[in-house]
Design a protein around this nucleic acid. Structure first.
Lengths: 339, 339
DNA sequence: ACTGCTTACTAAATCGTTTTAGTAAAACGT
DNA sequence: ACGTTTTACTAAAACGATTTAGTAAGCAGT
């Protein structure tokens, strides 16, 4: 049925060897002293026969796939979805395709995924790492495979990374609340060791301290990762109920937590910002367009993705390029959720 | 540095031929009369040497990649992001990885993408097709490559597909508005030939007719696809301004149009549902949790994705499996946006 | 003792490229 | 006119697996 055109077909059609064809099609005709006439002829024939190089054969020889692997927590999340989109766009511009996997923040899956991608010979990796991945990442780096961590990183691991200043972002959020006279600020975060979350928590704690507000452990809720949304909402309803009267504001450390939080408020018939003030780390459509608009610490998603691809491709294309540590700034976008 | 372990290394370590090793590692030991003792030995060694098969070599011989290609309009869109997530989950369960691309509904990109994926030898394809893709799709089908269209399809193309009953969904929406006594219903849709959009428009028109409401072309707005959101909002502000007083409700045919619409209302200081009623085809967080909640025609995203993967994998794994045409049902979720 | 069948393997071809190590012919320098 | 260099190519090996076509040894049956 589908007849594959190989380099040999072109070679015999042109009356030359496969070597010549390969050289021409890789644009090395001049360099290899193939005559212009022959180069033209081969190119014409390749076009005419609709030649498409065999990816496997090429890969087998060169080890290159022109594909990059992207690992995120969850592609359906606003932050990661938008990140993925820009990663794909930018990669495409530079001639790369992207293969993506969601880690689901799950130990088994985290480890498998990376091995799978390595088996498929990605030219490089952009990874929002889970803590479980550390050993695999160490191997990756040791084997010198181009890798850029995104959103978070491991201080002990000597890798490229692109993040935002999570600490400063959170601190700014707390300062903002404090400036508006809000004193009792609860924190809702994830139950994870991931650095970006730790930094956001540290920003919160530091913010309380700087504003001379008391730190109260009972006002901090850590929701297990990857829990279905309905369950998260239930946890939060419980948590907020317990804090009835003791809480004037909540700072959420991620957009999906914020969404669950708003759902919980809606169940509890608490209105924002009259009954409670809200700031969320990370933006999304609901926060931007919902009523009331939610004040957020917004991350420069597009820039992060662009930078990550840029750093990665540089790393892929010139082996000796130095490590990049990119830290971008967040922006506090004031809306109507702080009363 | 990184020493690759090949089948030959195992062969020489075990004192056998590469053939034997290959047979054993492909689980065909029994079938090929390899002694149990030898099979064990080879397996042990493979484990010990941390053998990982070379994807290229394997692919070169077998043509298989255990990878499926997914093409959507835009991975950062709520609908497609959630679709992609489930596709990836389900594919993973069956041992496949997913490579994704966004077509951006753009002619050039649409065509390139498919060729790129074919070049990389996906085992199968799940595609939300743009109209530009038709010729490439025809080729794909003619070449007998496992393919499932999703969200929309081409009636003239004999392919698998998974969609919802778009006509019925829209019709139900219009009936719902009519039942609430709303008469002047505007339509906001995309400027595209895609079948699902046509069907939604037909459902709208048919709904007006059945409810004896006048059809007025000036109340139909087609926004060009892929236009940046800010521009969409501007177009809509203009459109709604022109209809001032002539319009009681708007039916949006996709979630991103709905989001832009809400933004336009917010600019025009129109409140939903007091000044205007809204129904949107397709759900998202903003509609579900925003105030007021937006009444939507919700699609069974998870089921669609599951079904698509199921059909595709069947198609991949048994060549003669018959075509599947899956049409799922939408659900009208009533919230507070119809007054 | 010969044929035929089963068991337990293996050598070599193959997939489609790229690359290394050439070579014959032409051109050049003196 | 002779050696050297350059030009314009090619044959064959290599990448790492799978598969086809064997084969040698052992055993059974007559």
């Amino acid at each position: 049925m589908a007849k594959k055109v190989s380099i040999k077909d072109i070679a015999s059609a042109a009356g030359v060897s496969a070597t010549t064809v390969s050289i021409v099609l890789n644009g090395r005709a001049r360099e290899m002293k193939i005559s212009d006439a022959m180069a033209k002829k081969v190119e014409k024939l390749a076009e005419k026969l609709q030649y498409r190089p065999n990816h496997f054969a090429k890969g087998l020889r060169t080890g290159k796939t022109h594909t990059i692997g992207l690992i995120v927590d969850d592609i359906s999340n606003y932050f990661f979805g938008h990140l993925a989109k820009v990663v794909e766009e930018e990669a495409d511009k530079k001639g790369y395709t992207v293969m993506f996997c969601s880690s689901e923040n799950n130990e088994g899956k985290s480890r498998n995924i990376l091995n799978m991608l390595v088996d498929k010979h990605m030219d490089g990796y952009i990874i929002a790492p889970t803590t479980f991945m550390l050993p695999e990442l160490e191997k990756l780096i040791a084997e010198n495979r181009p890798t850029v961590l995104i959103d978070r990183y491991f201080p002990a691991l000597n890798s490229n990374f692109v993040t935002v200043d999570n600490f400063a972002g959170s601190l700014e959020a707390i300062n903002h609340l404090a400036a508006k006279g809000v004193k009792k600020i609860a924190l809702v975060t994830n139950d994870t060791d991931q650095l970006q979350m730790q930094q956001r928590i540290d920003g919160y704690l530091s913010g309380l301290q700087k504003n001379k507000l008391p730190i109260d452990e009972s006002m901090i809720k850590k929701i297990p990762f990857g829990r279905p949304e309905a369950k998260q909402v239930k946890d939060l309803v419980q948590f907020f109920t317990k804090l009835e009267g003791k809480m004037e504001a909540v700072f959420f450390t991620s957009n999906n937590l914020g969404v669950a939080g708003l759902e919980a408020f809606s169940i509890l018939e608490k209105t924002v910002p009259d009954n409670i003030s809200v700031i969320c780390f990370d933006d999304n459509d609901l926060f931007r367009l919902g009523k009331p608009g939610i004040t957020v610490v917004s991350q420069p998603i597009k820039q992060m993705a662009k930078k990550a691809v840029e750093v990665l491709v540089k790393q892929i294309e010139q082996a000796d390029s130095p490590l990049s540590h990119v830290v971008l700034h967040t922006q506090l976008i004031e809306r109507e959720s702080v009363g």
